[in-house]
């Protein structure tokens, strides 16, 4: 079964290569441009993994993460945070809110794909 991924990021020029890369790897990709869209998309598509940018308008990645984890239905959902801040407390906050892993910008696409695969393989 094709694995589905939702990318939530408000930077279009970043989403394009991410989408390209993940589609090439065989995942089915859905884009969301802010936190609220992300929640809607996840409810609709029911992906296995969501790439969450931390800094987004309307709802930040942290808020989305918290909302997702509050819902029991999302227990199997893997959350990968994209953060540019890299400050330890931000990372800790993310992990505390329920994210499974994080990647610090700027990252290499290969690094991201490897992390995605690792998270999805673990779940399987």
């Amino acid at each position: 079964m094709t694995q589905k991924i939702v990318i939530a990021d408000d930077e279009p020029n970043l989403v394009i290569p991410l989408e390209y890369m993940l589609k090439r790897e065989g995942y089915e990709v859905t884009i969301a441009r802010d936190g609220q869209e992300a929640l809607d998309a996840i409810a609709r598509v029911r992906p296995q993994l969501v790439l969450l940018d931390v800094m987004m308008p309307r709802k930040s990645g942290f808020d989305v993460c918290q909302a997702l984890r509050a819902d029991e239905a999302n227990r199997e959902l893997r959350i990968l945070l994209l953060t540019a801040k890299g400050r330890d407390d931000d990372v800790a906050k993310g992990l505390a809110l329920g994210a499974d892993a994080y990647v610090i910008k700027p990252f290499s696409p290969k690094e991201l794909v490897a992390k995605v695969r690792e998270l999805l393989e673990g779940a399987a």
């Binding site: 930077e11 020029n13 290569p17 390209y20 700027p106 990252f107 290499s108 991201l112």
Partner: peptide, 24 residues
């Protein structure tokens, strides 16, 4: 400093992702 670091890294992330994909 934190905000600025984020603002600088965002375009860098796009550039890196895109150029690495092209290279590989």
């Amino acid at each position: 400093m934190a905000s600025m670091s984020h603002e600088l890294r965002t375009p860098l992330t796009a550039i890196r992702a895109v150029t690495e994909l092209m290279r590989d």
